[in-house]
């Protein structure tokens, strides 16, 4: 499955700078989908080929315009077999609306929703009557918030961290002084399996895996998904449902979820990613109660 990373944030938050740096450094072979194709500045030395709506880099990365239909763009870019697709949401759009489509887009799995915020300007934007609601909405489902321009923020940095915590307490907040963020930091960094509950500052997220071959009761599973604690950020994996033959692929993110029939063959297991407040004992009891 191709991991999909959605990067949102209001105008001026530094999305384009971040994307340009990720492309220039390219730790993995990935594709970028952007709204404003003209703003992507790729060093000519890195460029292998380009046309009106896409660029191919010597390091194997591609950058494409989203165009009119986001789903179509995802389908096209998947054909190139990237390891990861990064989508830059437009500065006035709600990145979460885009991200949740990845829950049903065949071949994709939803990585974290990353929202950038100008550390020096965020409190002012939130107080603006015309756009405060838009900026708040962008942060409302973020898994990772990247504070940019922290060197310019001075004492406002404290206030900015406070408003982010108020809007989205679950989000992991990182600081990027000059857009210097590695791709690895923009994913759910979790410790190795053996030490998975020894979360450290380097591992802001926890993971826990539910393994049980028995099927769930469909209604009970839906109810469970509708009432998960806020510490659960993602669930992904395969499970059985009722007495139906075969497996279902379950994807959950921020109160939205989808299970679709799967080609099967995989182990029945659900991987849960959450904040450090994730409580496996509590979840295990809930999952067990939802079994058929």
């Amino acid at each position: 499955m191709i991991r999909l990373l959605v990067v949102g944030g209001f105008l001026g938050a530094g999305k384009t700078t971040l994307i340009n740096r990720l492309l220039a450094r390219a730790e993995r072979r990935f594709a970028v989908l952007v709204n404003d194709f003209g703003s992507v500045a790729v060093d000519a030395a890195l460029l292998a080929a380009a046309d009106a709506s896409s660029m191919t880099l010597a390091n194997g990365c591609v950058c494409c315009s989203i165009g009119d239909d986001f789903g179509l763009a995802l389908e096209r870019v998947a054909a190139g077999g990237p390891e990861l697709v990064v989508v830059e949401a437009s500065g006035v759009s709600d990145p979460w609306r885009i991200a949740q489509l990845a829950l049903v887009e065949p071949g994709y799995e939803l990585g974290p929703l990353v929202v950038l915020a100008d550390a020096a300007d965020l409190p002012r934007l939130l107080a603006d009557p015309a756009i405060g609601d838009v900026v708040r909405g962008q942060l409302a489902y973020a898994d990772i918030v990247v504070l940019t321009k922290t060197d310019l923020a001075g004492e406002r940095l404290v206030q900015t961290r406070e408003v982010v915590r108020t809007i989205r307490p679950q989000a992991h907040v990182i600081e990027a002084r000059h857009g210097e963020v590695g791709l690895a930091e923009l994913d759910f960094a979790v410790p190795h399996e053996r030490a998975r509950f020894l979360a450290t500052a380097a591992h802001p997220f926890r993971t826990w895996t539910w393994r049980d071959p028995r099927p769930f009761d469909r209604g009970a599973l839906r109810a469970l998904l509708g009432a998960l604690p806020a510490s659960v950020l993602r669930i992904k994996g395969f499970c059985g449902l009722d007495e139906e033959a075969g497996d279902f692929l379950l994807q959950y993110a921020a109160e939205r979820w989808s299970f679709t029939r799967s080609g099967a063959g995989a182990e029945r297991a659900l991987v849960v990613i959450g904040t450090q407040a994730l409580d496996p004992a509590y979840l295990a009891a809930d999952f067990a109660a939802a079994l058929r």
Binding site: R97, L103, V104, P106, W257, S258, F259
Partner: peptide
């Protein structure tokens, strides 16, 4: 589309029987 009673996404209208087939919003 991959939309069913098992998908709880924005823009899919539902009733007691699952999705009604009415969809809102560009995605």
């Amino acid at each position: 589309s991959g939309f069913s009673a098992d998908s709880n996404l924005d823009g899919l209208l539902r009733d007691a029987d699952g999705l009604t087939g009415e969809l809102m919003g560009p995605p």
